[in-house]
Design a protein around this nucleic acid. Structure first.
Length: 944
DNA sequence: ATAGGGTTAG
């Protein structure tokens, strides 16, 4: 039979009850059965040192035979045998005393002997045979029970003693206080102590401090401590410190330690280990280092408890190097030392190192226990050690230790991280007593692994079964509602969170904001933000993200300014989020400001911020800055490389993008599906059809990446642009996905360029169904017919467009100047400098005509005469933006404009000429890509 | 009479 399965590993071995054990001969010899048979310590586990005592072995061999003893030598002899746990020798003396009739004088000594040999039953027997037990006999009996894991019997004996009117002594009280099951009984014992005048005894006072501390009554503990001011010793200080630590008042404990040292009391190993734990609990690394210095000065760094506490402190407070240094110097490491260091490594993400430590630990002869293994389980996914994780699972089942709460959670989490939700679920179902953390692990696993419906239904089950939930539960389930974009579910979770008072929690607020904006409910998101989190950086980050993702980049930047005004210090998260806002706005100047923040606050080593910087500079039209940021990254991950390749692709630097991709492969960074999308995109913008075909057909075997819908869509677009319309259609028909609006849109555009009205008609019909609200479809279809000279069809489409009441999405352009973004729509006269802008356009018009520019009237479908058409063309939003930039920036400065639709073909021609006339670089970011106009040419090579 | 290590989570 196995027992002790809760803490069944490590310092204590799992106990197998076997007839060959120490106990069998004892039971026979002594005629005693029952409690004492287990030889357990108070935790119900066998201690490894409890082997067969040396003296007993020697006697069996016939050496050292027991001599006749004089009465005076009996008492020290019993004490010696008790210390060496020599049961048989003690029993021999017992028999000798019986025989010689000397038992009476030694009953209390025997009682104590049996108690120390963990035989409370024998002790009781001696006590029962005592004709008139005195207070010493009673105290010894209470001690025998208490020290051998029988607190109820100890209490019963104490009550019997009180009922018989036996005087209570200072030895019984501390022991019985230790047995008190609740504060009520503790208070009663306190009353006894006061009434018997024993409360002045320092041992009693210290025991009272410990009792009150253990039950959460720190103030009571403090009162008893204060009353014992005169006799206080180190134990009193340590006891109160420990009371503070146990009750989440770690900083008070640290302060108390200072008081103690100041008062001239020298701390011992108990005090040191306790105060180090207090520093850990209050996250006070500064105080911790000071204590560490004192520990070294006084030589207590040799104490395992203190050293372990230091390892734990440095691990948890972020100085893993110091943790390693202390760990390396622990004179005799035990399981706890290893556990503390291993968990520290896992906490810092050094998963591989944690596994190496496990091996070292084993080879140093120590057995890992449930504490070790729960940390190791956490490290398995990161270290790619799935097999080890499975083995731990098997090991746990075999040793009946799998019902350990932490191991259960660790297993659920590990299986979930490997996307084995069925296995996670099995472990979950198998665990009989499910606690909150276990539920959370499974729900988080589900929402992480994309099983959002499952996560939601688990959450509902939890609520129905009356389980408590916490912020982790809510955060996980909100992640799922965000992905499901299920507004009614969000409002329900919102209501639950409100009901149980979790709306002040930043993680919950974060989840709600995130869910709401993903459901297009930006106003709800904003309401949550305004109502619950005015001065919290996480909430600001969420809201800034929400605004920038919903195309409210300007509001995102405004909110950031507000955050600064409130005196909140930006962190790398909020700055990364802000960079995304700048990217979506093409706000180059703002992006540089954020870059400055990052440098100033020493965040340039942050991976997320660094990647966002690359992405933002590329999106803001400066591929050079993006390249610089990319080269400066301390660590380039797959996201960094993908951002750079994608940026180059958007700017039409196809060859450079492919070079970077080759470098990435050389450096053994595994590309993902996003990288491959960027690669295909690079080929697309540079017209590299053969390269694209090669990557597209071999990506699975070369990089193990399955082709997604996006890859197909990019490939179809590429074939279409290159005029290979048949190949494109073949791919549409053979791909394993329904063709999306993006695919048909690409085909429609291709059919216009390559004058294929039949394909254009097919694509447009699909688009009318897929995206009935979009106006561009009509325009493109009409253009397609126009390009083939089918004017009747053009007229029909225009009529259709009027009937369907589809409004044309207004074309807009933005240009950034210093810290403001200026917006323009076609024919816009609302800008304060409108007069100057139009004058500039007129001036340019003359110069352009002289340079040979002829307006391309085909691109405009308005039913107006020729001169009016020309005027409309020359007042397109992008032209207004460029003209404004020309009159507001110094000569020679590059001009960056962002447009919400594709750039107009006539404007494309115009800007080529303008760039030459004014000797400026003009950079237009349209919905698809970047156009760099310079010296009469565009970077896209007119291929777009 | 006073002491230690572990799990979920933006």
């Amino acid at each position: 039979m196995v027992f002790g399965h809760r803490k069944g590993f490590g310092g204590y071995q799992i106990l197998i009850r076997s007839p060959e054990g120490v106990r069998a001969p004892l039971a026979k010899d002594m005629g005693l059965m029952g409690q004492e048979g287990k030889h357990t310590n108070h935790k119900g586990l066998v201690h490894p040192h409890m082997g067969r005592p040396k003296e007993e072995k020697e006697r069996k061999k016939g050496k050292n035979a027991l001599p006749m003893r004089s009465p005076e030598s009996i008492s020290p002899l019993l004490a010696r045998y008790a210390a060496s746990q020599s049961l048989l020798l003690g029993a021999h003396i017992h028999a000798h005393l019986l025989k010689s009739g000397l038992l009476g004088a030694f009953r209390n000594h025997l009682l104590s002997f049996y108690s120390k040999c963990r035989l409370p039953g024998s002790a009781r027997r001696v006590f029962d045979e005592t004709p008139d037990p005195c207070h010493v006999s009673w105290s010894s009996l209470v001690t025998a029970y208490s020290n051998n894991g029988l607190p109820r019997d100890a209490l019963a004996a104490f009550r019997a003693m009180r009922a018989r009117g036996v005087r209570c002594n200072e030895f019984a009280l501390p022991i019985v206080l230790k047995c008190a099951p609740d504060a009520g009984l503790g208070v009663q014992v306190h009353a006894v102590a006061v009434s018997t005048g024993l409360s002045g005894d320092i041992f009693v006072a210290n025991a009272l401090v410990a009792m009150y501390g253990g039950f959460g009554f720190v103030d009571e503990a403090r009162r008893v401590f204060d009353e014992a001011a005169r006799d206080r010793n180190a134990v009193s200080w340590n006891g109160l410190m420990s009371a503070f630590v146990k009750n989440d008042r770690c900083s008070d404990a640290v302060e108390l330690f200072g008081e103690m040292v100041w008062g001239g009391v020298r701390p011992n190993e108990f005090g040191f280990s306790c105060v180090v734990n207090a520093c850990t609990g209050s996250r006070d690394l500064e105080a911790g280092r000071k204590v560490h210095a004192m520990v070294v000065r006084t030589g207590y760094d040799k104490d395992v408890f203190t050293a372990n506490a230091l390892v734990d402190m440095y691990s948890k407070l972020g100085d893993i190097h110091m943790a390693a240094a202390v760990f390396g110097k622990v004179p005799k490491t035990d399981v706890v030392s290893w556990n503390a260091f291993i968990s520290g490594c896992v906490l810092h993400g050094h998963d591989q190192h944690a596994l190496e430590l496990l091996l070292q630990m084993k080879s140093s002869g120590l057995v890992p226990n449930v504490f070790t293994l729960s940390s190791i389980l956490k490290a398995c996914p990161g270290a790619g050690a799935f097999t080890l994780g499975r083995q731990i699972h098997g090991f746990m089942i075999k040793s009946c230790a799998d019902s350990d709460d932490y191991i259960g959670v660790g297993l659920v989490d590990m299986y979930a991280k490997y996307d084995l939700l069925d296995d996670a679920r099995k472990v979950f179902d198998w665990i009989p007593r499910k606690d909150l953390v276990l539920w959370n692990a499974l729900i988080s696993g589900c929402s992480h692994g994309g099983c959002h419906g499952e996560a939601l239904s688990l959450f509902c089950r939890m609520r129905k079964e009356g389980f408590d939930i916490n912020r982790t539960t809510l955060a996980a389930v909100l992640k799922s509602t965000a992905s499901l974009e299920a507004i009614s579910d969000i409002t329900q979770v919102h209501a639950v969170a409100e009901k149980i008072g979790f709306l002040s929690d930043s993680h919950v607020v974060n989840g709600l904001i995130d869910s709401y904006w993903k459901c297009n409910c930006l106003h709800y998101a904003n309401r949550v933000f305004e109502e619950h989190s005015s001065d919290n950086i996480i909430a600001f980050t969420s809201m800034i993200t929400a605004l920038s993702q919903c195309d409210h980049g300007e509001d995102a930047i405004k909110l950031f300014m507000e955050m600064l005004r409130k005196g909140l210090e930006p962190d790398p998260f909020v700055l990364s989020s802000l960079l995304n806002a700048c990217a979506s706005l093409s706000a180059y100047e703002q992006g540089k400001q954020v870059h400055a923040h990052l440098i100033k606050r020493k965040f340039m080593t942050d991976v997320f911020a660094g990647n966002a910087l690359v992405y933002t500079y590329a999106k803001c039209g400066s591929i050079e800055d993006a390249d610089l940021a990319f080269s400066g990254l301390p660590e380039k991950g797959v996201v960094s490389w993908s951002a750079m390749i994608g940026g180059l692709a958007q700017h039409g630097h196809g060859k450079r993008a492919l070079d970077v991709f080759r470098r990435m492969v050389d450096e053994r960074i595994a590309p993902n599906h996003i990288t491959l999308t960027s690669v295909l995109c690079a080929c697309n913008h540079a017209g590299l059809v053969d390269e694209a075909k090669r990557y597209f057909s071999s990506m699975k075997e070369m990089f193990g990446i399955d082709r997604t819908e996006e890859h197909y869509s990019c490939m179809i677009d590429l074939l279409g642009r290159a005029g290979k319309l048949d190949d494109a259609m073949e791919l549409v028909n053979s791909m394993p996905f329904q063709a999306s609006a993006a695919v048909w849109g690409a085909l429609l555009a291709a059919s216009r360029v390559h004058r294929d009205p039949e394909l254009g008609k097919l694509a447009a019909e699909k688009l009318f169904i897929l995206e009935p609200e979009k106006s561009g479809t009509h325009v493109l279809l009409a253009n397609t017919y126009a390009s083939a000279g089918m004017w009747d069809e053009v007229a029909k489409v225009r009529k259709l467009m009027k009937e369907s009441k589809v409004k044309k999405e207004p074309a807009m352009s933005w240009v950034e100047l210093k810290d403001r973004v200026h917006t323009f729509i076609v024919g816009d006269k609302s800008h304060p400098r409108a007069r100057d802008i139009y004058a500039k356009l007129e001036e340019l018009g003359d110069l352009m005509s002289k340079a040979g520019y002829v307006p391309n009237l085909e691109v405009d479908l308005h039913d107006v005469d020729k001169s009016e058409k020309e005027l409309l063309l020359s007042h397109h939003s992008e032209r207004l933006a460029v003209a404004f930039a020309l009159i507001s920036t110094p000569p020679g400065a590059p001009i960056r404009v962002k447009k919400n639709l594709r750039i107009c073909r006539d404007c494309h021609v115009a800007f080529k000429i303008v760039s030459k006339i004014v000797s400026r670089e003009i950079i237009i970011r349209d919905i698809n890509r970047f156009h760099h106009f310079s010296d009469g040419a565009c970077s896209c090579g007119d291929y777009w």
